Simulated assay, not measured.
Amino acid sequence: MSTTFRTSRQFAVPPATVFAAIADAARIARWWGPAGFSNRIAEFDFRPGGRWLFDMIGPDGTVYANESVFVTIAPDRQLVLRHLCQPHFQLTITLQPAAGGTLLLWEQTLDDDAVAAAVRHIVEPANEQNLDRLTAELAVH
């Protein structure tokens, strides 16, 4: 079994503009993760099969090592990545043209239901904060 956390956000910019903030290592480093976190990217090989290695640094200085692989990249439409360290999950970000901009759909499917239940209280607000940070990134660029 698996558990999927879903959220969405409307942006007043076209899908290509949103995708550009995802596809650029310097930009994603600015907005990825919950409020108060920063990122140190070691590798960002943005192509299907490419690796994304980075550390997320929490507000208290705790370093969280992350390793993912890009599974699917459909420019201006979709990104699928597989998180290879705990918690194991697949993240699908879908961009749909919508009136006045883009509808972003965020679907994070954790492999283990017990892990999903244990982290639900963190993941649900963190995913919203992630999209808040993306909103801020789009506003300044």
Score class of each variant (00 low, 15 high):
residue 60 D to G: 09
residue 140 V to N: 10
residue 53 L to E: 08
residue 100 G to A: 12
residue 122 I to N: 10
residue 57 I to Y: 12
residue 46 F to S: 10
residue 24 D to N: 13
residue 123 V to R: 02
residue 122 I to S: 09
residue 112 D to L: 03
residue 50 G to H: 05
residue 68 S to T: 15
residue 79 L to F: 15
residue 83 H to Y: 08
residue 14 P to W: 07
residue 47 R to W: 04
residue 78 Q to R: 15
residue 109 T to V: 04
residue 6 R to D: 05
residue 51 R to P: 04
residue 7 T to R: 05
residue 138 L to N: 03
residue 74 A to M: 06
residue 131 L to N: 03
residue 44 F to S: 13
residue 128 E to G: 05
residue 67 E to H: 13
residue 109 T to P: 00
residue 103 L to N: 07
residue 31 W to P: 00
residue 30 R to Y: 00
residue 96 Q to I: 05
residue 17 T to S: 08
residue 137 E to S: 06
residue 48 P to R: 03
residue 94 T to Q: 14
residue 102 T to C: 11
residue 135 T to R: 13
residue 111 D to G: 04
residue 100 G to V: 13
residue 121 H to I: 12
residue 128 E to F: 10
residue 15 P to C: 07
residue 65 A to T: 07
residue 26 A to W: 02
residue 38 S to Q: 12
residue 114 A to W: 01
residue 22 I to V: 13
residue 53 L to P: 00
residue 129 Q to M: 09
residue 118 A to G: 11
residue 16 A to L: 07
residue 87 P to D: 09
residue 88 H to Y: 15
residue 82 R to F: 00
residue 49 G to D: 11
residue 10 Q to N: 09
residue 53 L to M: 08
residue 45 D to C: 07
residue 46 F to K: 11
residue 110 L to C: 06
residue 20 A to N: 09
residue 66 N to T: 10
residue 53 L to H: 13
residue 45 D to T: 08
residue 75 P to H: 06
residue 80 V to W: 11
residue 71 V to L: 12
residue 18 V to I: 09
residue 41 I to V: 15
residue 85 C to I: 07
residue 13 V to E: 05
residue 109 T to Q: 08
residue 72 T to K: 03
residue 131 L to D: 03
residue 24 D to A: 12
residue 59 P to N: 05
residue 120 R to T: 07
residue 1 M to N: 07
residue 15 P to W: 14
residue 90 Q to M: 08
residue 119 V to C: 09
residue 99 A to K: 12
residue 98 A to I: 12
residue 68 S to D: 15
residue 84 L to V: 02
residue 114 A to V: 13
residue 65 A to L: 10
residue 105 L to A: 12
residue 113 D to K: 06
residue 128 E to Q: 12
residue 53 L to W: 08
residue 33 G to W: 01
residue 113 D to E: 14
residue 10 Q to L: 14
residue 90 Q to C: 05
residue 69 V to I: 11
residue 102 T to S: 07
residue 58 G to M: 14
residue 3 T to F: 06
residue 117 A to I: 00
residue 37 F to C: 08
residue 102 T to D: 04
residue 110 L to A: 02
residue 137 E to A: 12
residue 120 R to Y: 04
residue 129 Q to F: 15
residue 140 V to H: 15
residue 125 P to G: 06
residue 68 S to V: 11
residue 46 F to W: 14
residue 113 D to F: 00
residue 101 G to C: 06
residue 49 G to K: 05
residue 31 W to E: 00
residue 46 F to R: 06
residue 116 A to K: 00
residue 112 D to G: 03
residue 130 N to I: 01
residue 133 R to L: 12
residue 123 V to W: 00
residue 59 P to Y: 08
